[in-house]
Amino acid sequence: MSETITVRPARGEDVAAIDGLFLRTFPEPAEAHLVRDLCIDGDIVLMLVATEDDGTVVGSIAFSRMAVEVNGKSVPSVALAPVAVDRDYRKQGIAEALIQAGLERLEQEGVVLCFVLGEPDYYGRFGFAADVASGFESPYAGDYFMATPLQGGLIPCGVRGRADHAPAFARLGQSE
């Protein structure tokens, strides 16, 4: 990652830049709408941005609240989605820096599990695995539904429970 890139929590003045980034980065506006809906619903737990020295937002990542239960007990959990890096800044380690910084901060804040819907080869580098998520009932269950245990792996593989994303995920892709 370039030495001129800084990863920090998003601030109010970053909203328009984050929205523009997600609109530019993905072929459809669904991810930008997801972030907006998560914010409006109050389900964002952590939003980080990667910025140039001049404050230009070149990357962003969102972590949102999830309702996760194991043996009938609530487990502090989040979903990672989405992550975006401006095209001109890709392949410089910015997405990796955003993911690592997010996971470290969430662990410090007591989050036990982080789920993601994504490419196993990519997210596997950060400890996400389908076998960790496979014991959870979810409409997204499958090979691309993965989780990584935080807090030193308090949740072993094979646990059974339920994992519900924030309501905005169910609206993802629905026409407005």
Rank of each mutant, 00 (worst) to 15 (best):
D19T: 13
G20Y: 02
L21R: 10
F22S: 05
L23Y: 03
L23G: 01
R24E: 15
P27T: 04
P27D: 01
E28T: 12
A30G: 02
A30Y: 04
R36F: 07
L38G: 00
C39F: 00
I40T: 13
I40W: 02
I40M: 10
D41R: 00
G42P: 06
V45I: 12
L46D: 06
M47Q: 12
M47I: 04
M47D: 10
L48F: 00
E52P: 03
E52H: 14
E52L: 08
D54V: 03
T56C: 11
V57K: 07
V57L: 09
S60V: 11
I61P: 01
A62T: 06
F63T: 03
F63S: 01
R65I: 04
R65S: 14
R65M: 10
M66E: 07
A67I: 12
V68R: 02
V68P: 15
E69Q: 13
G72I: 09
G72T: 00
S74N: 06
S74I: 12
V75A: 09
V75R: 05
L80Y: 02
P82N: 14
V83L: 14
A84E: 00
A84Q: 08
A84M: 11
D86G: 12
D86T: 04
R87V: 11
R87D: 15
R87N: 11
D88R: 10
D88Q: 08
R90I: 11
K91G: 04
K91A: 09
G93K: 08
G93P: 14
I94M: 02
A95R: 09
A95C: 09
E96K: 15
A97N: 05
I99E: 05
I99R: 05
I99D: 06
Q100A: 14
A101I: 05
L103Y: 01
E104H: 11
E104W: 04
R105Q: 15
R105Y: 01
L106C: 09
L106R: 01
L106V: 06
V111S: 02
V111R: 02
V112T: 10
V112G: 04
L113C: 04
C114P: 05
F115W: 10
V116Y: 01
L117S: 07
L117N: 09
L117D: 07
L117T: 05
L117F: 12
E119C: 08
E119V: 11
D121L: 03
Y123E: 13
Y123R: 14
G124E: 10
G127C: 13
G127F: 12
F128E: 06
A129V: 13
A129I: 11
A130F: 02
A130K: 15
A130D: 09
D131M: 02
V132I: 14
A133M: 11
A133S: 12
S134F: 07
G135H: 06
G135V: 04
F136L: 14
F136I: 09
E137L: 11
S138C: 14
S138V: 11
A141N: 13
A141Q: 15
G142L: 08
G142F: 02
G142Q: 03
D143L: 06
D143N: 05
Y144Q: 10
Y144K: 08
F145C: 10
F145T: 13
